[in-house]
Design a protein around this nucleic acid. Sequence first.
DNA 1: ATTAAAATATGGTATATACCAATAATTTTG
DNA 2: CAAAATTATTGGTATATACCATATTTTAAT
Lengths: 231, 231
Amino acid sequence: MKPKYMTLVEALESMIQSMGKNEMIPSERVLAKEHNLSRMTVRKAIDYLVDQNKLYRVNKVGTFTTDEKLYKKVDAFSGFTNEVRRAGGEPSSELIEYSLQAANKHIAANLGIKEGDLIYKVIRLRKKNGVPIMIDEAHFPQAIIPLNEQVVTGSIYDYIQNTLGLKIVTANQRFKATFAKKEYQKYLEIDELTPVIRTELHVYLEDGRIFEFNHGYINTDRYEIVSKSYQ
Amino acid sequence: MKPKYMTLVEALESMIQSMGKNEMIPSERVLAKEHNLSRMTVRKAIDYLVDQNKLYRVNKVGTFTTDEKLYKKVDAFSGFTNEVRRAGGEPSSELIEYSLQAANKHIAANLGIKEGDLIYKVIRLRKKNGVPIMIDEAHFPQAIIPLNEQVVTGSIYDYIQNTLGLKIVTANQRFKATFAKKEYQKYLEIDELTPVIRTELHVYLEDGRIFEFNHGYINTDRYEIVSKSYQ
DNA sequence: ATTAAAATATGGTATATACCAATAATTTTG
DNA sequence: CAAAATTATTGGTATATACCATATTTTAAT
């Protein structure tokens, strides 16, 4: 059974969708009355959306929409599928390429394996609610992650954690502004003059082995990278 | 007057400090009784710490400490000067503009203040080892951060923390690929076709007030953004 | 029309209470 | 001693209520 505040979150999300930026939403008391909820429950729903950067509050004035688009959390890495889902979206991916090949020097160095060792190369176009957001080339050492075509069309991270029982502990990510490869521009629905963020990602297992080396191109008009840091 | 849940947050923080990782803290009901608070107030304090990744909950079991110490080190926000220094570089900055002005609608919304409130606008070219890396426009509400020209040429963060005695707790940052403003291109030593990463930064004080809204342009050929995340 | 006072609305905090569902500890049963 | 049943404990959700301090709007006075 879905909690009531979650139902309200969804209602508010679609309301926000149809609003401009920095517009005020109805007050907590009004929302409570409209939805037959207590104000505390309404606050919980709003808390949820404030945490997601979709709303912000101004004390004694009101609660307003942000210019939030899609965003990517940097501080807790869980794979594209889970990240999009957590942000309240419906993730999907289109498989562009899937092959088993020998690692070249560059890939081998980034995975900490020997040149010539077998790796799976997986190129996927990632979408949120059907909208292309990023395209990425992932490389997995066959010796650690035995893939097959069925797994590749789903969430590889769920497979690694649940089926293989491996524990993912850290991810190092680098960001750089650049242009996308020509052959990727059509997938991302951009032209040759649209800058993108290129990510480079190394993901580690508990024992320190790298099981994924990934580089991707993000259309930041559709998917902004967000990071939250604490002191 | 400090809210009660904040007092509990502090008490819990020092408790966490003396505990190991993945250790269970007392239950909400016990904490409520011990501190003469209602359980809802205790939950609010725990919510705060969960959001900061210092605690995590397991439904029907308990609330536990994380291995946050490591995480904090990597992702802690400390301003450009300290960040460059930590990376082993020599930071410096060139003051491009410094003025006191009335906040326009956009700036006011981002700082959570009223349109027309006075803010300091500080534009600086940031360098690492004398090489221009990024340029940023920072905005500080005068009511919170009283600046002067001398402070602006040094580390504003050191001034805020040491002289004003304010506590910086969180920073939200967003990244987007774009091009730099024309007048900034010469400072960054790039041409009009070099993509940059645009950052947008909100920095928060302990009481939730935003004391800095900042947007900057990074020459990622010289300065890549790196993030490390834990699961 | 301007100014001043009053009323209203807002988010922020805090309490007390209640029930749920699943886990973990305890007790009972065989 | 082992298995099963019971009980206590846990976080999750939800309501109703109350008061605060300030921003905004409305009304009244000048």
